[in-house]
């Protein structure tokens, strides 16, 4: 069995799945050695629905890092560890979640000292006058030192053409990648096509980001699994007709193209709305058995107003 984090242990106590003394026992036996923390981070990655290519790549990266370290120990030549990455995929496909787990993983593997994630977008990096951009960008880099700087919709830095301050941000980032080689991991994220365009107009960049990961849109079945996971984390569950209604909604969203722009995020909105509607329904009917308090029905999910 995988080891639970303190938060997970406490959550189990709250839900009534674990006694206080059992939680304490697990805390007592919790070995804080890095290898266990590493296993935990990997377990979190592997518990994500889908993303098989990401999981496989992380496995490879881990092996690579471990072996390079062993080679170093016996004074063999080592490959430079350049781990800057490009994440391409639609919103809601798990890019940020994976980035956060990677930070922890790399910290445990000794690649990053802190492994935290700083998530930024154009507005956090680009300023309004000459010199302002470099200053803003450097500030974000400073925050991210020791961890990961995750730039969402990175191509928007190239939006305004030659005169745009976005270019200054890119230059500052490239310089930081040189200056803080062992302190900073950069991830550029965004839609696949836009990212391709961005990299092909900035050929110098592509070579600096040797790892490229694609985050495909989730299938309807995967989104259903994600919905069930989200619900059970919140101590709700779908009734049988609720499950069918969820599927109908997902199919409709997929046909209208909405699904591809939101993926798991859409599912989360859907679930959260259903939870609100369930509350209203239960207030009206006045019933509140434990079972009813947990069940999300077709009616809660329906309503026909889309997402």
């Amino acid at each position: 069995m995988r080891e639970l984090s303190v938060e997970e242990l406490l959550a189990k106590v709250k839900r009534g799945e674990l006694g206080v003394e059992e939680a304490l026992g697990q805390l007592n036996r919790k070995d804080q050695t890095p290898t266990l923390a590493l296993q935990q981070a990997k377990a979190r990655l592997n518990s994500l629905v889908g993303l098989e290519n990401v999981k496989k790549l992380v496995e490879e990266l881990e092996a690579f890092i471990v072996i390079q370290k062993r080679r170093q120990q016996v004074a063999l030549a080592t490959e430079p560890l350049v781990l800057h990455m490009i994440f391409s995929g639609s919103p809601g496909t798990g890019k940020t979640t994976v980035a956060r787990i990677l930070g922890e993983l790399f910290r445990q593997l000794g690649v990053l000292p802190k492994g935290h994630l700083v998530e930024v977008e154009r507005a956090d990096l680009v300023g309004e006058y000459i010199g302002h951009t470099a200053q803003k960008t450097r500030e974000q880099i400073r925050r991210a030192l020791g961890g990961i700087l995750f730039i969402d919709e990175a191509y928007s830095l190239a939006r305004g053409g030659e005169k745009d301050f976005g270019k200054e941000a890119i230059d500052t980032l490239v310089k930081a990648m040189e200056d803080h080689k062992d302190q900073l991991l950069l991830i550029l994220a965004g839609y696949e096509t836009e990212m391709e365009g961005f990299l092909s107009t900035n050929p110098g960049l592509r070579s600096r980001f040797p790892i490229q990961i694609k985050f495909p849109d989730y299938t309807i079945m995967q989104l259903e699994a994600i919905a069930e996971k989200m619900l059970s984390e919140r101590e709700y569950k779908l009734s049988k007709d609720g499950r069918a209604a969820l599927r109908r909604q997902l199919v409709a969203a997929s046909l209208s193209g909405e699904l591809a722009c939101g993926n798991a995020r859409l599912v989360r909105n859907l679930i959260e709305r259903a939870i609100r509607k369930q509350a209203v329904r239960l207030m009206q009917t006045g019933s509140s058995s434990r079972e009813e308090l947990m069940l999300i029905t077709a009616g809660d999910l329906g309503g026909g107003e889309g997402f």
Binding site: V6, L10, A11, V13, K14, R15, G16, V20, E21, L27
Partner: peptide, 21 residues
Amino acid sequence: GLVEGIHPERNIRLAMAQSLQ
């Protein structure tokens, strides 16, 4: 206060988790 086992009252479970924290 802490007690062994799983307390039937959610409020107390939450409070005991708070104590553990």
